[in-house]
Design a protein around this nucleic acid. Sequence first.
DNA 1: AATTAGTTGTTATTTATTTCACATTTGTTT
DNA 2: AAACAAATGTGAAATAAATAACAACTAATT
Lengths: 209, 209
Amino acid sequence: MDTLPGKTVERLSQYRRRLLNLLDDNVEYIFSHELAEIIQISAVQVRRDLMLLGFSSVHRKGYPVEMLIEVIGQRLDDEKEQNVAIIGMGNLGTALASYLNGIRPKLKIVALFDIDKKKEGMEIVGVKCYPFSELGKVIKSKRVSIGVITVPQTSAKKVAAQLVKNGIKGILNFTHIPLNVPSNVSLEEYDMITSLEKVAYFVKESQEK
Amino acid sequence: MDTLPGKTVERLSQYRRRLLNLLDDNVEYIFSHELAEIIQISAVQVRRDLMLLGFSSVHRKGYPVEMLIEVIGQRLDDEKEQNVAIIGMGNLGTALASYLNGIRPKLKIVALFDIDKKKEGMEIVGVKCYPFSELGKVIKSKRVSIGVITVPQTSAKKVAAQLVKNGIKGILNFTHIPLNVPSNVSLEEYDMITSLEKVAYFVKESQEK
DNA sequence: AATTAGTTGTTATTTATTTCACATTTGTTT
DNA sequence: AAACAAATGTGAAATAAATAACAACTAATT
Ligand SMILES: NC(=O)c1ccc[n+]([C@@H]2O[C@H](COP(=O)([O-])OP(=O)(O)OC[C@H]3O[C@@H](n4cnc5c(N)ncnc54)[C@H](O)[C@@H]3O)[C@@H](O)[C@H]2O)c1
Ligand SMILES: NC(=O)c1ccc[n+]([C@@H]2O[C@H](COP(=O)([O-])OP(=O)(O)OC[C@H]3O[C@@H](n4cnc5c(N)ncnc54)[C@H](O)[C@@H]3O)[C@@H](O)[C@H]2O)c1
């Protein structure tokens, strides 16, 4: 079975989140155009994505919500749990720890790290903060495969290198320093300033019209 | 002059950030392949983007760093300042306020909002927090054109509607509730869970190989 | 049971984005 | 000053992503 395009993965993640809401409201079936409407994309796009999952609707009733959630999970989630660590417990890291914790059953936040002695041993939403020097040890003992980087820019490269050295498989980088990792490590970078500048640009453009 | 593709805008934003670093290090010229290397993209991509700016290098010396920063600014930035408000001063909103404040001279964080009475009047990095009820008034008096939404999911739609009603021109939404805004309002949505799930998916895929 | 209407799955098409390939330009070397 | 080298700018090609178009299917209606 082929690896899905990144764009499709993003949308599947969103579909699932919306579908879980619908399930809470006891919605049993949903049409492609309804799901599309919620996410603000086209119905064809939805159908195309679901096609890639090889999942079919019940004709004239739509897609069964619960089963669709299940199928998306089968495709996106690892069978075993994937363990995540967050490195840098400042403003953003702390916000993320509480936000991400428990949000997906298969993605566990299992460790936090900081070099600040004051934060050592601290717990956020029940997850312990370790000194950065124990990175390697904890990654091994807790089988961490994904690292989220929220340290100051100046430390980003150092931290990434350490993660890679200790066998991490994926990195989500929130600093605005572009990282350079081996091709067997999945990398996702996100920069909030870029998002803000993008909105600002399109606002400017629309006003010039 | 045509509106740039969103992808190009994103990269220009990144180029500028890197170029500003280079300027600090007194680098005067840079080749397309050097900039490409830093951002981890191809040199052609860099040249194509700069081509869209109509900006030329000095042959065999590269692109003059300072002038390039200037040209990117002319294209991305509004001539006048663009004023930004952040709505929802919880973990993420607070982190963002201190992060975004002052990061681009033309993008000013001028107001923060929260419904929590305890936060009223509070200042973060010198910016005042107003009660949500004063949204309309403050947007007008401070000429806010961009709103950043960091309220709980349940309030996201309500807040967006209020922003639109009060004439906001652009919204950056960090909740994972998809928003529905009129087409004259620029919308940028970002969901950290999606990023994390994406990394997790590609980690899983790479391990199945 | 025939007709209608609504929705899907998929192929074809279009549009957007990236990469290739190379002629062109100009500093440097011989 | 000729040959070379390094980089650029860009048209053409390739790739990726989104949209359109529609035949096929079936639940509901007559
Ligand atoms: N605050 C935001 O909203 C925001 C948004 C986008 C990006 N960022 C980026 O995220 C990063 C963190 O932002 P922040 O506002 O949380 O900063 P912060 O200064 O509040 O937090 C950084 C934390 O990292 C710790 N740290 C420093 N070096 C470390 C190391 N080598 N190993 C482990 N921990 C280390 C510090 O002790 C501190 O607790 C920055 O690079 C920033 O550019 C922040
Ligand atoms: N924490 C994160 O790292 C993170 C990451 C991604 C997305 N998010 C999303 O961002 C949002 C905020 O996250 P958070 O962790 O900061 O939550 P939070 O609960 O810490 O903060 C929310 C703040 O919004 C205020 N608020 C509530 N209703 C409001 C209204 N109508 N107008 C103005 N203010 C209002 C609350 O008083 C509170 O201060 C959530 O929707 C969350 O899903 C958070």
